[in-house]
Simulated assay, not measured.
Amino acid sequence: MTRRGGMFITFEGIDGSGKSTQARALAEHLRQRGLDVVATREPGGSPGAEEIRALLLRGNPDRWSAETEILLFTAARRDHLERLIEPSLAAGRVVVCDRFADSTRVYQGVTRGDLRQIVDELHRLMIGREPDLTFIIDIDPETGLSRARSRQGGEERFEDFGTQMQARMRAGFLDLAREFPERCRLIDGNRPADVIAAEIAAIADEALG
């Protein structure tokens, strides 16, 4: 029997890993299967969270401390959860999200200070939900940074931290894949996009039934 929705799928990875492209591809694949899909992103995904996104992703790299970022990301995530994610899942939809709490665990909890415990405690208190399935797109840090900088989208604050931070983030995501093997699938992002998309679609189809 085919499962008809109510599943939370997230995409993670360093900047320029191709996760946004793959999230869109999976959402389209699942729609073609006849599923009711909500495609969203973080930070953002709801009006209030999008306002916080503008604060977080623009400006100088040192605009916010890691501690302040954790609070802002958690506030955006809570609004996103209340207004979009939870209602969509309750209605039986598949939610495909470009980034979620794992990004905060890595960016603020690991690479910008030893703040993982704070990230996890705030997540427990204010979010309380993990994805059902997470795709971590793994790619060489220099390649990812080059791709990210070529976008010129006006939201380059984190990319401006440079290659060393990208390398630390990659290590953080690899650690998360080992920490949460029941939901995380590590995907080689150094291949053609269509090959990656086919692998992800197959995994998602199996999970959805």
Rank of each mutant, 00 (worst) to 15 (best):
L145I: 03
Q108F: 00
H80G: 02
M165W: 08
D36K: 01
F11N: 06
L208Q: 04
V38A: 04
T40E: 06
I200F: 15
S103Y: 13
P47Q: 11
R170L: 14
F135S: 06
Q108V: 00
T111I: 04
M7P: 02
R183W: 01
G44P: 11
E156C: 03
Q166M: 12
E182Q: 15
A91V: 11
H80Y: 10
A197C: 02
A91W: 11
A193T: 12
E182M: 04
P181L: 15
R183L: 07
V94E: 03
I85F: 04
R149V: 10
D175V: 03
I203D: 06
V106M: 09
D194R: 03
G16T: 15
R4S: 09
R4G: 06
E12I: 03
T2F: 07
T40D: 08
E121R: 12
V96S: 10
P192A: 04
R99A: 01
A23I: 00
F161P: 01
R83E: 11
D15F: 06
E67P: 02
H80P: 02
T2A: 09
R191T: 02
L125F: 13
I139T: 15
A177R: 14
R58M: 15
I52A: 09
M165V: 12
D132V: 06
L71M: 15
M165Y: 02
F8N: 01
E42L: 05
G48F: 15
R3H: 10
F173Q: 13
E86V: 12
R93Y: 04
I136H: 10
L122C: 07
P141R: 11
I70V: 08
I136K: 13
S146K: 11
T74L: 00
D175R: 12
V110S: 09
V38K: 07
G92M: 02
E12R: 13
A197S: 05
L84Y: 03
Q108L: 01
I118T: 12
T74E: 00
R151Q: 15
A204Q: 08
E182W: 08
R147H: 14
L176P: 08
V94T: 02
L145V: 09
D120Q: 05
R168N: 09
H29F: 10
D114S: 05
Q108P: 05
R24F: 07
R124S: 09
R157D: 15
A167R: 08
G128I: 00
A49Q: 08
R53Y: 02
D175S: 09
A91M: 03
T10R: 11
E199Y: 10
G209K: 04
R147E: 13
R149D: 13
Y107D: 04
L84C: 11
G172A: 10
Q164R: 06
R63W: 05
P87D: 15
R24Q: 12
A167K: 05
R151Y: 14
